[in-house]
Measured scan of single mutants.
Amino acid sequence: IRCIGVSNRDFVEGMSGGTWVDVVLEHGGCVTVMAQDKPTVDIELVTTTVSNMAEVRSYCYEASISDMASDSRCPTQGEAYLDKQSDTQYVCKRTLVDRGWGNGCGLFGKGSLVTCAKFTCSKKMTGKSIQPENLEYRIMLSVHGSQHSGMIVNDTGYETDENRAKVEVTPNSPRAEATLGGFGSLGLDCEPRTGLDFSDLYYLTMNNKHWLVHKEWFHDIPLPWHAGADTGTPHWNNKEALVEFKDAHAKRQTVVVLGSQEGAVHTALAGALEAEMDGAKGKLFSGHLKCRLKMDKLRLKGVSYSLCTAAFTFTKVPAETLHGTVTVEVQYAGTDGPCKIPVQMAVDMQTLTPVGRLITANPVITESTENSKMMLELDPPFGDSYIVIGVGDKKITHHWHRSGSTIGKAFEATVRGAKRMAVLGDTAWDFGSVGGVFNSLGKGIHQIFGAAFKSLFGGMSWFSQILIGTLLVWLGLNTKNGSISLTCLALGGVMIFLSTAVSA
Rank of each mutant, 00 (worst) to 15 (best):
Ile1Gly: 01
Ile4Met: 14
Gly5Gln: 05
Gly5His: 04
Ser7Ile: 01
Val21Lys: 02
Leu25Thr: 03
Gly28Ala: 15
Cys30Pro: 01
Cys30Ile: 04
Met34Ala: 05
Asp37Tyr: 10
Pro39Gly: 04
Thr40Glu: 06
Thr49Met: 15
Asn52Gln: 15
Ala54Thr: 10
Glu55Met: 08
Arg57Met: 11
Cys60Asp: 07
Tyr61Trp: 09
Ile65His: 03
Ser66Thr: 07
Asp67Asn: 14
Ser72Cys: 09
Cys74Ser: 08
Cys74His: 06
Thr76His: 03
Asp83Ala: 15
Lys84Ser: 12
Gln85Cys: 12
Thr95Ala: 15
Cys105Gly: 06
Phe108His: 07
Gly109Pro: 02
Lys110His: 12
Ser112Leu: 00
Lys123Ile: 00
Met125Ser: 01
Thr126Gly: 14
Lys128Ile: 00
Glu133Thr: 03
Leu135Cys: 04
Glu136Ala: 10
Arg138Cys: 02
Arg138Trp: 05
Ser142Val: 01
Gly145Met: 12
Ser146His: 14
Met151Asn: 07
Asp155Lys: 02
Glu159Gly: 13
Asn163Phe: 08
Ala165Tyr: 10
Lys166Glu: 14
Pro171Gly: 14
Pro174Thr: 07
Pro174Leu: 10
Gly181Gln: 07
Ser185His: 08
Leu186His: 04
Leu188Ala: 04
Arg193Ile: 03
Gly195Ala: 15
Ser199Tyr: 02
Tyr202Val: 15
Leu204Cys: 09
Met206Cys: 04
Asn208Trp: 02
His219Ser: 05
Pro222Glu: 10
Trp225Pro: 04
His226Leu: 06
Asp230Leu: 14
Asp230Ile: 13
Thr231Phe: 04
Thr233Val: 12
Trp236Glu: 04
Asn237Arg: 14
Ala248Phe: 09
His249Asn: 01
Thr254Cys: 04
Val256His: 07
Val257Pro: 03
Gly259Met: 09
Ser260Lys: 08
Glu262Tyr: 09
His266Arg: 13
Gly271Pro: 11
Ala272Pro: 12
Met277Gly: 07
Asp278Ser: 15
Ala280Gly: 13
Leu284Arg: 01
Leu284Val: 15
Ser286Trp: 14
Leu300Gln: 06
Ser304Tyr: 15
Ser304Met: 13
Tyr305Ala: 03
Cys308Val: 04
Ala310Pro: 00
Lys316Thr: 07
Thr321Gly: 07
Thr321Met: 10
Leu322Lys: 04
His323Pro: 04
Val326Met: 08
Glu329Asp: 15
Val330Ile: 13
Asp336Arg: 12
Gly337Asn: 12
Lys340Pro: 02
Val343Thr: 02
Val347Trp: 13
Gln350Asn: 14
Pro354Lys: 13
Val355Ser: 15
Gly356Asp: 05
Leu358Glu: 04
Ala361Gln: 06
Pro363Thr: 01
Thr366Cys: 07
Thr366Gly: 00
Glu370Arg: 02
Glu370Thr: 04
Asn371Gln: 02
Asn371Leu: 15
Asp379Tyr: 03
Phe382Lys: 07
Gly383Met: 09
Ser385Asn: 11
Ile387Leu: 02
Val388Asn: 09
Gly390Leu: 02
Gly392Ala: 15
Asp393His: 15
Lys395Pro: 05
Lys395Leu: 15
His398Val: 00
Trp400Asn: 11
His401Lys: 13
Ser403Met: 15
Gly404Ala: 10
Ser405Trp: 03
Thr406Ser: 13
Lys409Cys: 08
Lys409Trp: 02
Glu412Gly: 12
Glu412Ile: 06
Arg420Ser: 05
Met421Val: 14
Ala422Gln: 06
Gly425Cys: 07
Thr427Ile: 08
Gly432Gln: 09
Ser433Asn: 04
Val434Gln: 12
Val437Glu: 03
Phe438Tyr: 01
Lys443Glu: 11
Gly444Ile: 12
Gln447Phe: 09
Ile448Asn: 10
Ala451His: 07
Ala452Asn: 11
Ser455Gln: 13
Phe457Gly: 01
Met460Asp: 12
Phe463Ala: 05
Gln465Leu: 04
Gln465Ala: 04
Ile466Leu: 06
Leu472Gln: 03
Trp474Lys: 05
Lys480Arg: 15
Lys480Ala: 14
Ser483Asp: 08
Ser485Lys: 04
Leu491Phe: 08
Gly492Lys: 09
Leu498Pro: 13
Leu498Ala: 02
Thr500His: 13
